[in-house]
């Protein structure tokens, strides 16, 4: 970066751009989890509703973490527009499958940010993103384990399956 610009910001502008896209993705994921929570809440699926409300909060926290990082590093964090969220689901299993797809999409996007930070030698951003890389491994594992419960309890009443699922 040119010296005058470097004195103003630590973060590389290209990394700032991909991180702003990441904020939008995290906030969209948060809104999407909220829709899933509402679906479960209306059907009294208590554990699943608690799980998705929590997930919604977590995704927002992730977005805010990146938001603060960009501004702290001298960049400009952008409050994102949230595109339309799907509120229409067929089954609880479908919701968890969609949730896994969403987590995979977030993981891929984090990898993209990580690669960008590495390619432009933005070490501070790379270190910052390491936490997200580990977090995504956990997130994906949680949802995969839940889908395993669905496989094991195939044919059982929905309420009974829900009672075996984690709340967070």
């Amino acid at each position: 970066m040119k010296t005058a610009i470097r004195r103003q910001m630590t973060i590389h502008p290209e990394v700032m751009d991909v991180l702003n896209e990441q904020i939008a993705l995290e906030m969209h994921a948060s809104a999407s989890y909220l829709a899933m929570a509402s679906w479960c809440d209306q059907r009294e699926l208590l554990n699943s509703k608690a799980f998705f409300y929590k997930q919604s909060e977590e995704e927002r926290e992730h977005g805010m973490r990146i938001f603060n990082f960009i501004n702290d590093a001298g960049g400009a964090a952008i409050s994102p527009a949230i595109p339309e969220v799907n509120n229409d689901f067929e089954s609880l299993r479908e919701i968890y499958e969609k949730s896994l797809d969403q987590e995979i999409q977030v993981t891929q996007s984090i990898y993209k940010c990580f690669s960008k930070a590495r390619s432009v030698n933005d070490y501070a951003s790379e270190v910052f993103l390491q936490w997200f890389v580990n977090e995504q491994v956990e997130e994906e594992d949680t949802v995969r384990s839940i889908l395993d419960v669905f496989d094991l309890m195939e044919g059982m009443p929905l309420k009974m399956i829900d009672e075996r699922l984690p709340k967070e």
Partner: peptide
């Protein structure tokens, strides 16, 4: 100012 420059960069890139 620098924040205004960042804002301009964003608008022009879009």
């Amino acid at each position: 100012t620098f924040p205004q420059l960042l804002q301009l960069r964003k608008k022009v890139n879009e």
